[in-house]
Design a protein around this nucleic acid. Structure first.
Lengths: 246, 246
DNA sequence: TCAATAGTGTCTTTGAGACACTATCCG
DNA sequence: CGGATAGTGTCTCAAAGACACTATTGA
């Protein structure tokens, strides 16, 4: 973005970037999906102190030559094997005591993926990488561990997850992010289930269908979903500019 | 937030925070107000390279022991003399080339203030600290300099200003941030002017008044604004919990 | 009295919810 | 045929826009 101007060159060469103490900067990615009628978050068991053995969001240091979003995509690929999905910057958490080692400022991202896109390899499972359903407990969203109890996450990652859910819930109604949680083809009822899961309330069927169809963001395909009962028409998401998903 | 656990202590003591190269972290504050039927942004002329002589947002390095929000409030006070105003984290800009000196990641904040709260001292004016009206040019928001032409700002600060305006515009209708741009007492027409200025369109008077009054966020006072014509009732902003502004 | 702004009453339009209805599949 | 889900027609209600109207001041 910013290109050095000729008159700045001399100053730049004499600039000493070690003059100030610098915090560490990391990215953490809150990868969310919808499955089994619940929002689910991808967590990873920590193998090193601090918080060894506790669950945390995938994350890592930002390298000196990569953008924040590039760092988030790299971390996502390295730690979960997922690529080319919806990713949005969420919030930057910088409380001086959020990491007991040293000053670490983390730029948190939310990522959304249809659950079919994530293949948990045996090797990943060995690292205790898995989906945690999220339940609303006393007004706070918390991932539920295998024991059925709410997990306390490492660092301030519990707060990051809560913030991510707020963001997704808020943007659900006036953006098209819901489609990022669905496969390429889906039925109107499937979109409605995604909305109902995230908003945690039932929606009126007729009004919901009207709204989606009148928004002009889906296109019917020739296929239908069969299985037991009346088959349901399949749709694809189309961007406002007319582009379809790959 | 995160308190060190006993079992982490040994690890913490052996941790070397110089192991990784660290970027610099700054905060930049986009201080906005409404005056003369325009959104205005506070800019400051740079006295050092890079971009010496160009205008930029107030900003500065985050100290190792202060939170991001504390840093933003400190910068705001040091560079503009303003304290105790609405402040909200906006977005973190971290393109590797956004600062030609070295890697600088900046956490941008939006701040809102009623224009009467800002007193530009002679000393501040000598530093070329002043309000720039913002105009929409070719879909992009840009501050208009004294010459009447759109100013190109230092670094990526033009992008920060655009992002800030988008944020304020988006939150105007479903939050109470508009009141942060008004003095303690105001008329309904004055609120409407703030909305119209930020949204850049006329609003229907009857519907607007209904909406504000039915939202229950203002309380009439005994005073009225006189001046030439029919006096207008004065109102105060009341939080949902009933608290009034100081 | 007039100009100018404050403030109101009411009709229309729009979109969401409620709810009952029809349609189509499988067993 | 009956159970189950897909999909529709229509009534009601709430909120926003349009617009015309009344109210109150100072000059």
């Amino acid at each position: 973005v910013a290109t050095p101007r000729p008159e700045d060159r001399e100053f730049l060469e004499s600039y000493d970037s070690t003059e100030f103490a610098h915090p560490s900067v990391t990215v953490d990615v809150c990868l969310l999906t919808v499955a089994d009628a619940a929002l689910q978050v991808m967590l990873l068991q920590r193998v090193n102190p601090p918080f060894e053995g506790m669950f945390a969001l995938p994350g890592g240091f930002v390298r000196m030559d990569e953008s924040l979003e590039d760092a988030a995509r790299r971390v996502l690929l390295e730690e979960t094997g997922v690529r080319d999905i919806y990713l949005e910057q969420l919030y930057t958490f910088g409380d001086p005591s959020r990491d007991p080692r040293t000053r670490v400022i983390t730029v948190a991202y939310v990522a959304l993926v249809p659950i079919e896109r994530v293949i948990l390899t045996r090797e990943a499972q060995a690292r205790f990488l898995c989906w945690f359903p999220i339940a609303e407990r006393r007004g706070e969203a918390a991932p539920i561990g295998p024991s059925g109890r709410a997990e306390t996450l490492a660092f301030d990652h519990g707060q990051i997850v809560s913030t991510a859910i707020e963001r997704v819930r808020g943007k659900l109604e006036y953006t098209t992010i819901a489609f990022q949680l669905l496969p390429r083809e889906f039925t109107l009822t499937e979109i409605q289930r995604v909305f109902e899961t995230i908003l945690e309330r039932k929606l009126a069927k007729a009004a919901f269908r009207r709204r989606i169809l009148e928004a002009g963001v889906v296109r019917p395909t020739s296929g239908e979903r069969r299985g037991g009962h009346r088959p349901a028409r399949l749709y694809r998401f189309v961007e406002r500019n007319g582009a379809e998903r790959p």
